[in-house]
Protein backbone atom coordinates (compact mmCIF):
# COMPACT_ATOMS: atom_id res chain seq x y z
CA UNK A 1 0.00 0.00 0.00
CA UNK A 2 1.14 3.54 -0.74
CA UNK A 3 1.13 4.98 2.77
CA UNK A 4 2.54 8.30 1.60
CA UNK A 5 -0.35 8.74 -0.82
CA UNK A 6 -2.80 7.90 1.95
CA UNK A 7 -1.13 10.48 4.18
CA UNK A 8 -1.47 13.14 1.47
CA UNK A 9 -5.12 12.27 1.00
CA UNK A 10 -5.77 12.42 4.75
CA UNK A 11 -4.04 15.81 4.97
CA UNK A 12 -6.66 17.21 2.59
CA UNK A 13 -9.71 16.27 4.69
CA UNK A 14 -11.21 19.51 6.03
CA UNK A 15 -12.76 19.98 9.43
CA UNK A 16 -16.53 19.85 8.79
CA UNK A 17 -17.31 22.84 11.00
CA UNK A 18 -14.33 25.01 10.11
CA UNK A 19 -13.62 23.88 6.53
CA UNK A 20 -10.84 26.48 6.22
CA UNK A 21 -8.46 24.12 7.97
CA UNK A 22 -7.78 20.41 7.71
CA UNK A 23 -8.08 17.79 10.44
CA UNK A 24 -4.30 17.42 10.40
CA UNK A 25 -3.81 21.19 10.86
CA UNK A 26 -6.35 21.13 13.68
CA UNK A 27 -4.08 18.64 15.40
CA UNK A 28 -6.63 15.91 15.97
CA UNK A 29 -4.92 13.21 13.85
CA UNK A 30 -2.68 11.16 16.12
CA UNK A 31 -1.65 8.39 13.77
CA UNK A 32 -2.10 6.78 10.39
CA UNK A 33 -0.84 3.22 10.19
CA UNK A 34 -1.12 0.09 8.16
CA UNK A 35 -2.67 -2.91 9.86
CA UNK A 36 -3.17 -6.44 8.59
CA UNK A 37 -6.73 -5.55 7.65
CA UNK A 38 -6.06 -2.18 6.01
CA UNK A 39 -5.56 1.31 7.47
CA UNK A 40 -6.08 2.56 10.96
CA UNK A 41 -6.49 6.27 11.74
CA UNK A 42 -6.26 7.39 15.34
CA UNK A 43 -8.09 10.64 16.14
CA UNK A 44 -8.35 12.72 19.31
CA UNK A 45 -11.74 14.42 19.74
CA UNK A 46 -11.60 18.15 20.48
CA UNK A 47 -14.47 18.47 22.97
CA UNK A 48 -16.32 15.64 24.77
CA UNK A 49 -19.61 16.73 23.30
CA UNK A 50 -18.45 17.84 19.85
CA UNK A 51 -21.33 16.82 17.57
CA UNK A 52 -18.99 16.65 14.56
CA UNK A 53 -17.05 13.66 15.92
CA UNK A 54 -19.08 11.03 14.04
CA UNK A 55 -19.08 13.10 10.88
CA UNK A 56 -15.30 13.47 11.04
CA UNK A 57 -14.87 9.70 11.33
CA UNK A 58 -17.15 9.23 8.29
CA UNK A 59 -15.23 11.84 6.28
CA UNK A 60 -11.92 10.11 7.05
CA UNK A 61 -13.27 6.71 6.05
CA UNK A 62 -14.67 8.12 2.81
CA UNK A 63 -11.45 9.95 1.92
CA UNK A 64 -9.30 6.84 2.38
CA UNK A 65 -11.76 4.31 0.96
CA UNK A 66 -9.62 3.58 -2.12
CA UNK A 67 -6.79 2.35 0.13
CA UNK A 68 -8.87 -0.51 1.52
CA UNK A 69 -10.53 -1.10 4.83
CA UNK A 70 -10.28 1.91 7.14
CA UNK A 71 -10.72 1.73 10.87
CA UNK A 72 -11.10 4.99 12.81
CA UNK A 73 -10.14 4.82 16.46
CA UNK A 74 -10.99 7.60 18.92
CA UNK A 75 -8.33 8.11 21.54
CA UNK A 76 -9.25 10.41 24.43
CA UNK A 77 -5.94 10.44 26.28
CA UNK A 78 -3.79 12.52 26.23
CA UNK A 79 -6.53 15.12 25.90
CA UNK A 80 -6.49 17.28 22.76
CA UNK A 81 -5.09 20.76 23.21
CA UNK A 82 -5.19 23.87 21.03
CA UNK A 83 -1.40 23.82 21.44
CA UNK A 84 -1.53 21.07 18.79
CA UNK A 85 -2.98 23.31 16.06
CA UNK A 86 -0.18 23.67 13.50
CA UNK A 87 1.32 27.05 12.50
CA UNK A 88 -0.31 26.69 9.04
CA UNK A 89 -3.60 25.95 10.76
CA UNK A 90 -3.32 29.08 12.87
CA UNK A 91 -2.60 31.20 9.82
CA UNK A 92 -5.59 29.78 7.95
CA UNK A 93 -7.90 30.36 10.91
CA UNK A 94 -6.78 33.99 11.08
CA UNK A 95 -7.42 34.49 7.35
CA UNK A 96 -10.82 32.82 7.71
CA UNK A 97 -11.78 35.39 10.35
CA UNK A 98 -11.31 33.26 13.46
CA UNK A 99 -8.56 34.50 15.76
CA UNK A 100 -6.35 31.51 16.69
CA UNK A 101 -5.47 30.80 20.35
CA UNK A 102 -3.21 33.56 21.68
CA UNK A 103 -1.67 31.63 24.55
CA UNK A 104 -1.05 28.06 25.64
CA UNK A 105 -3.82 25.99 27.15
CA UNK A 106 -2.23 26.24 30.58
CA UNK A 107 -2.49 30.02 30.78
CA UNK A 108 -5.89 30.07 29.13
CA UNK A 109 -8.52 30.41 31.78
CA UNK A 110 -7.41 33.23 34.00
CA UNK A 111 -7.21 36.18 31.64
CA UNK A 112 -9.41 37.49 28.86
CA UNK A 113 -6.92 38.19 26.06
CA UNK A 114 -6.48 41.45 24.15
CA UNK A 115 -7.39 40.57 20.59
CA UNK A 116 -6.95 42.42 17.31
CA UNK A 117 -9.83 42.29 14.86
CA UNK A 118 -9.11 39.69 12.15
CA UNK A 119 -10.91 41.87 9.57
CA UNK A 120 -9.69 45.45 10.08
CA UNK A 121 -6.79 44.77 12.47
CA UNK A 122 -8.33 47.22 14.92
CA UNK A 123 -7.11 46.94 18.48
CA UNK A 124 -10.34 47.87 20.28
CA UNK A 125 -12.33 44.67 20.64
CA UNK A 126 -14.53 43.13 23.29
CA UNK A 127 -15.70 39.68 24.25
CA UNK A 128 -19.45 39.20 23.91
CA UNK A 129 -19.64 35.66 25.23
CA UNK A 130 -17.24 32.96 26.32
CA UNK A 131 -19.15 30.52 24.12
CA UNK A 132 -19.84 30.77 20.42
CA UNK A 133 -21.41 28.88 17.53
CA UNK A 134 -19.38 25.85 18.65
CA UNK A 135 -17.93 24.94 22.04
CA UNK A 136 -14.38 25.63 20.85
CA UNK A 137 -14.95 29.33 20.11
CA UNK A 138 -15.96 32.49 21.97
CA UNK A 139 -17.85 35.42 20.43
CA UNK A 140 -16.28 38.88 20.02
CA UNK A 141 -16.87 42.15 18.26
CA UNK A 142 -14.61 44.87 16.94
CA UNK A 143 -15.52 48.31 18.24
CA UNK A 144 -13.65 49.98 15.37
CA UNK A 145 -15.23 48.31 12.33
CA UNK A 146 -18.32 47.02 14.13
CA UNK A 147 -17.96 43.49 12.80
CA UNK A 148 -18.42 40.41 14.96
CA UNK A 149 -15.74 37.72 14.94
CA UNK A 150 -14.82 34.54 16.75
CA UNK A 151 -11.88 33.47 18.87
CA UNK A 152 -10.62 29.90 19.08
CA UNK A 153 -10.39 29.37 22.85
CA UNK A 154 -7.19 27.87 24.19
CA UNK A 155 -7.95 24.55 25.86
Amino acid sequence: MDLAAARTRLAAVPDPEIPAISLVELGIVRELRETGAGLEVVLTPTYSGCPATELIADDVRAALAEFGRVTVTMQRSPAWSTDWITPEGREKLQRYGIVPPQCSAEQAIRVVPKLRCPRCDGGRTEQLSRFGSTACKSTWRCIECGEPFEYFKPI
Binding site: Y47, S48, G49, S129, F131, T134, T139
Partner: peptide, 20 residues
Protein backbone atom coordinates in the same frame (compact mmCIF):
# COMPACT_ATOMS: atom_id res chain seq x y z
CA UNK B 1 -28.75 34.74 22.24
CA UNK B 2 -25.23 34.54 23.66
CA UNK B 3 -26.52 32.75 26.75
CA UNK B 4 -28.62 30.45 24.63
CA UNK B 5 -25.43 29.34 22.90
CA UNK B 6 -23.46 29.17 26.15
CA UNK B 7 -26.03 27.03 27.96
CA UNK B 8 -26.37 24.70 24.97
CA UNK B 9 -22.59 24.41 24.65
CA UNK B 10 -22.16 23.57 28.31
CA UNK B 11 -24.98 21.03 28.06
CA UNK B 12 -23.23 19.43 25.10
CA UNK B 13 -19.92 19.20 26.96
CA UNK B 14 -21.67 17.54 29.90
CA UNK B 15 -23.54 15.20 27.60
CA UNK B 16 -20.22 14.20 26.02
CA UNK B 17 -18.76 13.55 29.45
CA UNK B 18 -21.82 11.49 30.39
CA UNK B 19 -21.48 9.44 27.20
CA UNK B 20 -17.86 8.58 27.93
Amino acid sequence: LEEDLALSNMALDLLGQARA
